[in-house]
Amino acid sequence: MLGKLIRKKNVETEPLISVELESVKSKHIPAHVAIIMDGNGRWAKKRNLPRIAGHHEGMKTVRKITRVANDIGIKVLTLYAFSTENWKRPKLEIDFLMKLPGEFLSTYLPELIEQNVRVEMIGNFDVLPEHTKNAIQRAIDETAENDGMTLNFAMNYGSRLELIQCMQEIAKLATEGKIELEDIDETLIGNNLMTAHLPEPDLLIRTSGEVRLSNFMLWQLAYAEFSFTDVLWPDFDELCMINEIKEFQSRNRRFGSVNEEGDA
């Protein structure tokens, strides 16, 4: 991890954020950053608050990170908001999580439109509550003409389910005689994933100190750079994000090849 920057009040960090922004913008910027937003519950527990308080605070972080990612010049920001496994959580928590998209988008949608951000979603949309679907669909519709950064929410998403659906679609094509066995390759699989229209992530960030993928974009992350930070998601601020990009920029991505010195 890159050395930590001192974080004081927002008014004191704004000049530092501005300087650091210009620094990262002058170098190679990852086109697609994916984030596993983790640690809301632990953030709340440390403060003797209910878990839903952590989720609400995490929503504010989504706004901050969306803004700074857009300022940096990232093309796609994918946020793992709710997994197919998260339905196992207590009903009260699930109900609150299902209300958050509506609250977030009703509050910040005008800002997203102003920033030319396009909202998208991957995941099983149909089984979400109607109020959740309506909020997401409204944001998708009202930002459809925007051509700036894509804010892609992974909502009710699970990579294994995505891969199963992908294989089913390919099997259907084969059964209908539209493809041959030798047509099945990486391109065909990629074209039948939920992210077919997006570039594969260059960088995966997971907050809260957990070091696992949790069924997230298992195919797409094959050559992404991974970064695991101990910072809990509600505490993950603009400087944290900038530091992650600087760390990414310091790495030598070889994609299975060798560098100029011949190192594997």
Rank of each mutant, 00 (worst) to 15 (best):
R67M: 03
H32G: 06
I52D: 06
M149H: 00
I170Q: 07
E142K: 15
P90M: 06
E176K: 11
K4S: 07
V119K: 09
K88D: 11
F226R: 06
M98N: 03
H32N: 05
H28S: 12
L92G: 07
E225D: 14
S83C: 01
E260R: 13
L21C: 08
I29V: 14
H197N: 13
T229C: 02
G158F: 12
N124R: 11
V258E: 06
L128N: 09
L188A: 05
I136L: 15
F153I: 15
N215A: 00
L79P: 04
R63S: 01
K75W: 02
A154V: 10
V76W: 07
H197I: 02
A44C: 07
D185G: 12
A174V: 02
F236C: 02
S227E: 10
D141W: 01
A135R: 08
F236Y: 13
A81T: 12
I65N: 07
L193E: 07
E57L: 00
L2M: 10
E180L: 07
N191E: 14
D183V: 05
T195C: 07
E85W: 13
A31P: 00
E93C: 08
V231M: 00
Y80W: 10
I205Q: 07
E103C: 00
E85A: 09
P30F: 07
P30E: 08
A174E: 01
I52M: 15
K60D: 01
S18K: 10
A44V: 08
K8H: 09
R47T: 09
A34I: 00
M1D: 05
N48G: 07
Y223G: 05
R251L: 11
L92T: 15
K60S: 02
Y157D: 02
L181V: 09
N10G: 02
H55F: 10
R160H: 13
L221D: 09
N146K: 08
M194T: 03
D126I: 14
F216L: 11
E186W: 02
I189D: 05
D38G: 09
E12N: 11
S106P: 00
N124F: 04
L112D: 10
